[in-house]
Design a protein around this nucleic acid. Structure first.
Lengths: 221, 221
DNA sequence: ACATAAACTATCCAAATGGATTATTATTCA
DNA sequence: TGAATAATAATCCATTTGGATAGTTTATGT
């Protein structure tokens, strides 16, 4: 029997979830709470042997949210697995939950069968359950942990590049030469060159490499 | 029809994989290669409209491995999705593949149905396909991130550039030409050029702009 | 001492680039 | 309508670049 806790402020959510995992007789709901604060209170009252193996935690809750609760509880109870069960999939919540100590992140839209399977797998192999779309977002976090840029559309205005010029700068950055750019947007390579030189003037540079440096570092592409 | 490429040194693997995805008539295998190097060569010969949408890449291959191939190709062909298909699930390979630009990582043990489903989902929603056990390992990476230094070293190792070559790539990125680089580090412009061409070979490109694209997007500079 | 790998240098050649100038067409705005 | 702007295109010219090839020198380790 896997001792399981459910923390969610909505009664209906808890009921649905209980129903989903209870079809599978491996799960035994040993604790329910409506926010992080009462969850921690309840945990304190339990003896070591009665602690839940797995805690299913909603994110958005009054009083104390899921992230804060996981942050505290994962330190106090290192043997307990905390799994986020949320309707939200935005990067910030995912990131903070992981940092807090969550070992899994499941979207509520998943079917009961899938959720049960994932939790059983966590129990058996220790691999944290992660919904596919969440997994992809986590991968993106690993790919570029330093998201310094973004929201730099204003930076583009500074250089007064025309639509066409931005398009050509983009193609330049892909390593294409005049001929290739001309072919891909159906204009003469001479015209492409003319555009490039116009771009250089606007950027106050005089070579492809310098233009690309500005393009990359100022977020023009 | 999803144009698909398969890169794997073992004929039997390619055959099995082709069989797995071909049961689903959405996939059209447009390119096969036995290592990263021949894959890049084949890609160069394709026109924009014939590029594969998805590339399924083995990791362990002779000549040029999957990580290096993805590193170069994902910079050169930003619209193409690169998915690793491997029997290995060790942290280092996963991490380096993601850093190189992979958008998914599937274990070969997955069934044909599952693989097809994952790839179709990638095609339809853009979410990268990730085997559950891999997803968990990626989560661990977010939990305990490497330092920036370690990351840059990881990225650099993919391309095997020497110290001097990195130095020159750095100067190249500042928009200097051969003469200027030569003057600034007191060597002949001919030597600078020789270094550049060596760099191009290691990066599998053939122009300054393409080399800089990889340098910027892969954190080499 | 020898092998090996980097790093360095040079030369030839074809192609691409950057710069300046001129000119036509289409669109937009006062 | 007329002026201004952007996009298109072509030409000439000097310089830079990429590619191949053939060397020498300098470290490095065995």
């Amino acid at each position: 029997m896997i001792r399981t806790a459910i923390v969610d402020d909505k009664l209906s959510n808890r009921t649905v979830l209980k129903d989903k995992v209870s079809r599978n007789s491996f799960f035994n709901i040993v604790l329910e709470a409506t926010n992080g604060s009462t969850f921690l209170d309840s945990m304190k009252k339990l003896s070591e042997d009665d602690l839940p193996h797995i805690v299913l935690m909603d994110i958005e809750m009054p009083e104390m949210d899921g992230v804060a609760a996981i942050g505290t509880a994962s330190s106090l109870y290192p043997s307990v697995k905390f799994v986020v069960l949320s309707i939200f999939d935005d990067d910030d919540k995912i990131f903070r939950a992981i940092k807090a100590g969550a070992c899994g992140y499941i979207l509520k839209e998943e079917s009961g069968t899938v959720i049960s399977e994932m939790l059983l797998n966590l129990w058996e192999s220790g691999a944290g359950p992660i919904s596919p779309s969440i997994a992809y977002k986590i991968l993106q976090m690993v790919k570029k942990p330093l998201t310094i840029k973004e929201e730099n559309i204003a930076a583009q205005e500074v250089f007064h590049l025309s639509e066409r010029e931005r398009e050509i700068l983009q193609l330049l950055s892909q390593g294409l030469e005049y001929k290739e750019i001309g072919n891909s947007i159906f204009i003469s390579p001479n015209t492409v060159k003319k555009h490039c030189i116009n771009i250089y003037h606007k950027l106050h540079v005089n070579s492809k490499a310098q233009a690309l440096r500005i393009a990359y570092t100022k977020g023009l592409i």
